[in-house]
Simulated assay, not measured.
Amino acid sequence: MSEAASTRSTAARRATGPAPHPALLPSLAPLLHEWLPRQRWFAGKGRPVTGFSLVAATELLPARGGSTGDTGAPGLLHLLVGVQQPAGPAHGPSAPPVADCYQLLLGVRSALPPRLAQALIGHVQEGPLAGLTVYEALLDPRLAALLLERLRTTGSPGALRFERDPSAVIPPGLTPRPLGAEQSNSSLVYGDSFILKVFRRVSPGSNPDLELPLALARKGCERVPAPVAWYEADNGDDPDEPYTLGVLQPFLRGSEDGWQRALRALAAGHDFTADARALGRATAEVHTALAVALPMVTLRRQQTEALAAAMTERLDAAAQAVPALVPYVPALRTAFDAFAARGRAGRAWPAQRVHGDLHLGQALRAPGGEWSVIDFEGEPSRPLAERRRPQPVVRDVAG
């Protein structure tokens, strides 16, 4: 086990109170070795999994099992699991192993009913779940509904902490359904009223997809759906830096994302200029509210050189992945070098919190014509500290 993984495991024992059964993770490891790399949100594809560590385990609903041939009442097990892998090629041959932390919600039954066959993870052979079947809980409507109930009532089971906006009304009994396009996270829609984003690869520290919409809501910015409930996990090493695990927000029913709208306009030969201007105004409103809600900084020589170096690193990685970009590399390098040179000459730029991954797919246009901006997580593949760093607002404009 790596030093980082060992630290997280120790923190989990402090956070959860009684330690989970020591055989729990070893009994699940063979199943996770097969299942995890197949998930769309697993970031370490193409690299072998060399080990697991248990960061936290919380039993949200005990599995009661059933008789032979009975699927039994489902249980719900929440895990934070550290996954060790060799570093990727971009880190260099001598880079140390990588240890990422993933949030898993596991359903537990005596047997899986046919309607949940696609959710199967596997059958546990030994340990505290021996003889039971584990599966992806978010695909089970009963367990997805339980998760919403936890968000409705708040509380702190085990290492988890469920919170909500006390002024928000979340009706009981909303029917859950998984959102079709699963990417780096998983999303559930409840009754076409709310959407729950479940973060899969998590790090200590407030996720911008919770932090920024909360800050914008406090400033009365209506361009971003305000969080109505969320849940986190305690971080034993730093209570002020919990793991953000999920955010519940209003579901913008009937909205059309900007990418699809632009493609449709292009196919029909329509002008997108009015939509683009309206989206620009929405982006400006968000930036203005963020500048008031959160501290601004000034980028001087050291910061501009670091920013230029990061852009050059990303350019090299992109060109390596997409050879068609290679002819453009020299001119872009020149532009980045010129930016760094202006910083060395004393030029400074204002910077603030921004969206960080703004593109047309992150903008939704309501049937009435107003634009909203969603998904403030930033680029999930980048470190959390980098995604929370103030940046020039032109990054969002360029996106």
Rank of each mutant, 00 (worst) to 15 (best):
A265N: 08
V286Q: 05
V83A: 00
L299M: 15
T50E: 13
F162Q: 00
A217E: 09
A137M: 05
A363N: 02
V292C: 13
G65D: 02
L196R: 04
L143A: 01
A319P: 00
T334P: 01
G246D: 04
G51L: 08
G205P: 07
A291Q: 12
A229V: 09
P37V: 14
T273L: 15
A233K: 06
A276M: 10
T7H: 07
Q320A: 15
L146K: 07
V134H: 05
Q118T: 15
Q118K: 14
A310C: 13
R314T: 04
L112Q: 09
P239I: 10
P141K: 08
A398N: 11
T10F: 03
P392W: 06
G69S: 06
A229M: 03
A318L: 15
R115F: 11
L147V: 09
L104R: 03
E379S: 08
E241M: 12
N235Q: 01
P128H: 02
P93N: 05
R14I: 10
P178Q: 12
A159N: 00
G369D: 00
L212C: 03
P227H: 09
T133N: 04
G205S: 01
L60M: 09
V198H: 11
A398W: 05
G236Q: 03
L364K: 06
P20L: 02
E222C: 11
P141W: 02
G158K: 03
P157I: 11
A267V: 12
M311I: 13
T175W: 01
T71D: 15
D275L: 05
P86G: 09
V108D: 07
A310W: 12
V397E: 08
A23D: 15
A282K: 07
G191T: 08
R201G: 00
L129D: 09
A317E: 15
R347G: 04
G173N: 04
A289K: 11
R382F: 09
A267K: 11
P30A: 06
I374M: 06
R264H: 14
L248M: 07
S156R: 13
A12Q: 04
L179R: 10
T153A: 07
S203F: 14
L252P: 01
A233L: 01
R38W: 08
A340R: 09
L132P: 02
R300N: 11
G69W: 09
N185K: 04
A274P: 02
R164M: 01
R281V: 12
A5D: 12
V326C: 06
R314A: 13
L214Q: 13
A324K: 02
L196A: 08
Q249S: 15
R142P: 00
V297E: 13
A321T: 07
A319N: 03
F336S: 08
G191S: 02
T16I: 09
W349S: 00
H78I: 05
A284H: 06
R382C: 00
E34S: 14
G378M: 03
G191V: 10
V326W: 01
F376G: 05
A181V: 11
H270Y: 09
P113R: 05
A229S: 04
A291N: 03
R333A: 10
R344S: 10
P323M: 10
R382N: 13
R200I: 06
L210G: 03
T71E: 13
R264T: 13
F339M: 12
E256V: 15
